[in-house]
Every structure is written in structure tokens, then in C-alpha cells.
Simulated assay, not measured.
Amino acid sequence: MTETQSHAPTFADFVAGERAVLTRVSVRLLADGLELVQPNGHSMIWRWAELRAEPDQADKDVLVISRSGDKVARLYLRDKNVEAQLRSSAPHLKERDRAISISKLMAWAGGAAASVAAIIFLLVPMMAAQLAVMLPPEGEKALGDTTFEQIRYALDETGLVGTPICEAPVGNAAMRAMYDRLNPSSDLPYDIQIHILDHDMVNAFALPGGRIVFFRGLIEQAENPEEIAAVLAHEVGHVVNRDPTRDALRSAGSLGVLGLLFGDFAGGTIALFLANQLINASYSQTAEAKADDYAHELLDGAGVSPAALGTMFERLVAEHGDAEGIVAHFMSHPQMGKRIAAAQAAVVESRTYGSVLDASAWRSLQTVCDGSSALQADEGLPDKKAWPGDD
């Protein structure tokens, strides 16, 4: 090998990477690269084509050189004359060494995605199911109480007083009578409390700790008390199966994992919401189907036709249609057509079903959010009983 210059060797600091120790080495410029000679006489050649300049160094007076394919070895060069010769001789000095191949990067990304999927779809639901059983009743009730108040204030347009709770005594007595007629025999660690919110939303849901919430809009939408009883039986099924607590824990875990991945970027909130809906859809659909099965048995045992659970669904399908294809995966409930068919199939042909409330009690329930309903007489209702959860 011949040297490109005849001047005496310069010196630089070298670290091999095995230990954080700098070694003083002599550096000579050769025709095909740099020769590094260590104090023990050992020498090595770094070829011009292998040399890379490391970026973003704090000390601008030092040129830090690495070698393509070597992730740890570094040469710290301060001689400006040698640096100038090196910059003109090393053709790839400013290039970045691609240490990871695309295929390897894709393999790592696939493994990371599989790990996240395992956490979200397997570990989080499993832990949520275990914690829902282990969580003390006081903890569930506290969670349900807090969530209930948050919902009330979120639905209130002013955000100041919260959506009103319908307090008409006769209307609430009708709901109590309906619950007594269903007579759930589950051994829950807490009493079931039923609230009716003065809001036009057509919905009902269960919260952790035994709270069941109806909206005025659902009661107004119903054509008969059996439909409300069917919805009530369905929500009791969720309470019995601890679905509200399990879902709250699962959603918190899933969003927490997704938040760590996506952060708070533009549009990130929407992405997290859609991802969480897709993640929870299959579990929610399973829970809804089980709650429907529970409601069918509870209604049949109370002498109320299980088909009542499907009649309101039929009107919703007629008005809005049923979810098909990818839309169905983002719905928290199974397809309406399947739920209607299941409700009709649960009817025992040889059994005679009756009404859950008489006409007077049904009118009282329909006007439960009307302040004037508090003045109605208690006609048509059974003797008042202490309602679970009442003070």
C-alpha cells in the first residue's frame, strides 16, 4: 500500500466499543483508506468506501468517524488537514449506513404489532374479567356513581346542573312494580337502582355497581309496557354478568395501550376512538347476546312474552335499517335482525303471556318526567314497597 501523502502520521482517539475507553492511535492516509495503528502495534485498515461521518456531535471541532457495518467503533479526529483529505477521499462519508434491512424492519414491526394485538385482544380482556370479579362492591358502586354524574352533566346543554332525574312518584312506582314482576333472583353484592333521565335519547344502559339508566326518549318510543320490561330485563342481565364493570376496565386498558402507541397527534383522538370501538365491538356483541338470553328467560318466567324484546328493534330497523358489512363490526350490539329472530324463537307457543302493567300504571310510567304526574293517584299499582337502593 502507498500513502497518499508523505507527511508524518497524525494522532486520533479510538474506541473499539467493547469498553468505554479511548485509545490513542496513529492515523496514516493510504491510497485505499485509513491505517489505524494502536500502541501495541496492532493495525487495521478502514477503507474509504466504508467511512461514515456521525451526525449531530456536540463538539464541532472533532470529526467522528464510524465504519460501515460496525455499530460501535468510533474514531475521533481533530487534525483539520487530515479531515480535509478524508472528506475528499471518502465517497460515502455523508451517507447514512442502513444497518437494518427492510425485511428485518418489517419483521420487527410485525412482531411488535402482534405483541400489541395480544395485549389488547387477550391480556387486557382477561385481566378485565378477573378484576371485575375481584373489585370490591364499594369500588364498583363508586365507579358507577361517578360515571352516572358525568353522564348527567355531559348530556346537559348548559353543563351546569346536569340532566334532570325524573322524580314523579307514581311513574317511578310503576317502574318498581315492573321490576318486582320480573323478580330477578340473582345474588348480587349490591342492590339494583333504576333511574330515568329527562332526555329524548332512545336508549338505556347499565353502569357498574348496579345502576340501570333509562332515557325518557326510550319510554316515549315504546308502544307498550312489555317493551320497557324487556329492556329492563336485558339491562339486569348486564348487571348480573358484571358487564359494565368489565367493559369499563377493558376500555381503560385498551385506550391506555393505544394511547402509548399513537400519542396525541392530529386526528389521534378519532383514531383511538375508532380503534377502541373495533376492539370492544366483538366483546360487547357477546355480552349483548348473553344479556338477551338472560332477558328471554326472565321475561318468560314473569309471564311476559320474550318477543317484546324484538318488537322495538323491528321499528328501529324499519326506520334506520340494520348494520351490514364493516359497519356491523363497529357496532356495540349484534345485528338487529338476529336479535329479533332470537326473541321470537324464545317464545313458548303453549304458554299464555300477559301484560306487565295495567293501563293506568303504564300511563304513569309514560309521564314519569312530567311534573304533573306526581299529582296522579296511585290507581292500578300494587302496594308500595321499599325500592332497592332507596334511602
Rank of each mutant, 00 (worst) to 15 (best):
M1S: 12
M1L: 12
A8H: 10
P9I: 05
P9N: 05
T10S: 12
F11G: 09
G17V: 04
A20I: 10
A20V: 11
L22T: 02
G41S: 11
R47D: 00
E50H: 14
S66P: 01
S68W: 11
R74D: 08
L75A: 07
A84C: 00
L86S: 03
H92W: 04
K94L: 10
E95F: 00
D97S: 11
A99K: 13
I100C: 07
M106Y: 04
A107N: 09
G111K: 00
L123P: 09
A128H: 00
E138H: 01
G139Q: 10
G139F: 06
L143V: 13
T147E: 13
R152T: 14
A154E: 14
V161H: 08
E167V: 09
V170Q: 14
N172T: 02
M175I: 15
M178K: 06
M178T: 12
L182E: 07
S185Q: 15
Q193E: 12
I196F: 03
L197S: 03
H199S: 02
N203Q: 08
P208W: 04
P208Y: 05
F214S: 03
R216H: 08
G217L: 07
L218Q: 12
I219L: 11
E226P: 07
A233C: 09
H234L: 06
V239S: 02
V239M: 03
T245D: 07
L249G: 11
R250F: 10
R250G: 05
G253H: 08
V257I: 15
G259S: 10
D264Q: 14
N276I: 02
N280W: 00
A281C: 06
S282V: 13
Q285M: 04
E288G: 05
E288K: 05
D292K: 03
V304Y: 01
P306E: 02
L309N: 01
T311C: 01
E314Q: 13
E314N: 02
R315P: 02
A328V: 02
A328C: 03
H329L: 15
H333I: 13
P334T: 12
R339Q: 05
A343T: 08
A345S: 15
A346Y: 13
S350Y: 00
V356I: 15
W387M: 13
